[in-house]
Structures are given as C-alpha cells and as structure tokens.
C-alpha cells in the first residue's frame, strides 16, 4: 500500500498546540467568569447596598459599604412588624409536605408500574405522564371552585394537594425509569425468601435513592417559587408563603429603598445559603433526572 501519497496529510501548520490549549483554557475561564459575574452581580449589588445609608445607595451604588456609609436602618424597618417568620414557616411546610408526598407516592406508583405486568399498565403510565406536558394552572378556575367546596381556601392543605398533583406526573415518570434499573433478581430473591410486596418495596426504596433525590429536586423548585397558587388559593396573611409574602410586603415599601433592599436581602440570603451548601447534591439530582 502506498501510504505516502494517500495519507490524509494534516495541514502542516506550525502553530504550537500548547499555546492554543492555553488560549482555550483562558478563553473558557474568561467566558465563564463573565457570565458568573452577570449571574451574581445583581444579587451582590442588592446585598451590598442593603447595608448602606440612603444617601450612599444613591450616590454610588457600586461601592462597598464603608464605615461612613454603613447603615442597617433598612433591616430595622423590615424586622419590626413583618411576618417573615410565618411566611417562611408556611413555605417550608408546603414545600416539605409536597415533596415528601410526591416522592413517596410516585415511588409507590412507579414500583407498581415497573414491577407488575397488568392490563392497562401502559395506558395508566401514559395517563399519568400526560400531566408532564400540561400546566396545571390551566385548571385554576376549577381548582378554585373545588377548593371552595372542600373549604380548603386559605389553608396550606390546598397548596399541598395542588402541588402534589402537579409534581406527580414527572415524579412517576422519573421514578419508573429508576425503578426499571433495579435488578429483577433482587426482588425475586426477596420474594423467594418470603417477603410480601410491602417488604419488597421497602427493600427497593434505598436502591432508588438517586431517583428520589432527583424527583425531590425537580418538585422543590417550582413549589417554593410559585406565586400563582398562593395568590389564588391561600392569600390570607397567616397562610402566605414567602414568595407571596415577599411580593406583598415589598409592595408596601415602594419608596423606602433601605427597607426594600433589606427585605430583598432577607428573602434571598437563606435560599442562597441553603443552595450553596447543598448545591452538589442539588445539581446532581437535577443532572440525574435530566437524562432520564
């Protein structure tokens, strides 16, 4: 074979790869760093200015608070006479309850769908999956009527039930994918050992932990951040979630910038801290769910 002539001669450029690689790395950092600044900037600007006096906020928004300009007057205003603690509690209850219900119920349903071959298995799976594509908000008119007739308006239960229904379709779908990966032998072995179906389910649960984490993450975000249903189903002062509470609360301080900035900071910082602490688990859950 005459290779000298037929070899796909690579262009004989003398550009040293080393330099190109370094430029590449440098470029990657540059782009990511700029975007990170864009992502963080607004948040930092708010937090930074919440610690400054009114004059300093307007004189030079981009400078850090100094001894001269440091001022906590905004926090004073906000912390006196707000019910953020109640809002946080409500949000927490609603989110945790919905996430737990979604995770547990979808695990159960997915176990049945993945495990048993019964008539209508596929049909039921399809029925449950339709909800992934259709936003529950379109049923708001009837949901409101339904909640009124169940006397659940202005209760956290209304939110929990709606969010559970909202999270289930995706939850069941994801969990079914994860359940399918559990080796059949394992379940068979347990049955041979005399375990009843509940025990088999209990045995399988720990094996699909990554799946449960993924479902939890996917359920959590839209629930915690939702404004629509709290606004419509539970707008009362004592059932407001943080999102709705902050929305209404911030509205009161239209002109008081110190208070606005302080309130925003108070609403953001806990979430950011929680996120940063759990970001690895959180993003892993998202990543694992995304490829299913």
């Amino acid at each position: 074979m005459n290779t000298a002539t037929s070899a796909p001669a690579p262009p004989n450029r003398i550009s040293p790869t080393k330099r190109r690689i370094h430029f590449g790395r440098w470029g990657v950092h540059a782009v990511l760093l700029s975007y990170s600044m864009l992502a963080l900037g607004p948040t930092l600007l708010i937090i930074m200015n919440s610690l400054k006096s009114r004059r300093a906020i307007f004189d030079d928004a981009f400078s850090l608070p100094t001894a001269d300009t440091f001022d906590l007057v905004g926090y004073d205003t906000v912390l006196n006479g707000s019910s953020f603690d109640v809002y946080f509690r409500n949000s927490f209850i609603v989110t945790v309850a919905s996430v737990l219900l979604v995770v547990f119920f979808s695990a159960m349903a997915a176990f049945a769908l993945a495990e048993y071959d019964f008539k209508g298995n596929t049909l039921l799976a399809l029925y449950l999956a339709i909800g992934i594509m259709i936003p529950i908000r379109l049923g708001t008119v009837s949901i409101l009527k339904l909640m009124v007739s169940l006397s659940l308006i202005n209760t956290l239960w209304a939110l929990i039930l709606v969010y559970t229904a909202m999270g289930l379709p995706l939850g069941v779908f994801l969990m079914t994918q994860f359940m399918r990966q559990v080796p059949r032998e394992l379940k068979s072995a347990a049955r041979v050992d005399g375990a009843n179906e509940y025990r088999v389910f209990g045995l399988v649960l720990p094996l699909v932990r990554p799946g449960m984490a993924a479902v939890a993450v996917f359920t959590m975000l839209p629930v915690w951040n939702d404004l629509w249903f709290p606004l419509i189903l539970a707008p009362a002062e004592n059932t407001r979630t943080v999102t709705l509470g902050a929305s209404a609360f911030l509205g009161q301080f239209e002109r008081n910038w110190n208070a606005l900035l302080a309130a925003l900071t108070l609403a953001m910082v806990p979430i950011i801290l929680l996120y940063v602490i759990f970001s690895r688990q959180f993003l892993r859950g998202l990543t694992e769910g995304a490829i299913k």
């Binding site: 219900l101 119920f105 979808s106 159960m108 349903a109 176990f111 049945a112 769908l113 039921l124 029925y127 449950l128 909800g131 259709i134 529950i136 379109l138 049923g139 708001t140 008119v141 009837s142 949901i143 009527k145 339904l146 039930l161 709606v162 559970t164 229904a165 909202m166 289930l168 379709p169 069941v172 179906e197 389910f201």
Partner: peptide
C-alpha cells in the same frame, strides 16, 4: 401502590383541567 398517586392526580389535576 397506585391508588394515592392516581387519586390525587385525578382529583386535583385531571378533573380540574377537564372541568375547566
């Protein structure tokens, strides 16, 4: 195993959508 998911989903999502 299927009951809780199916019931909650049907009552609070499918029914309202259809009713709507």
């Amino acid at each position: 195993f299927l009951a809780p998911a199916t019931v909650i989903y049907s009552v609070f999502m499918v029914y309202p959508l259809l009713d709507s």
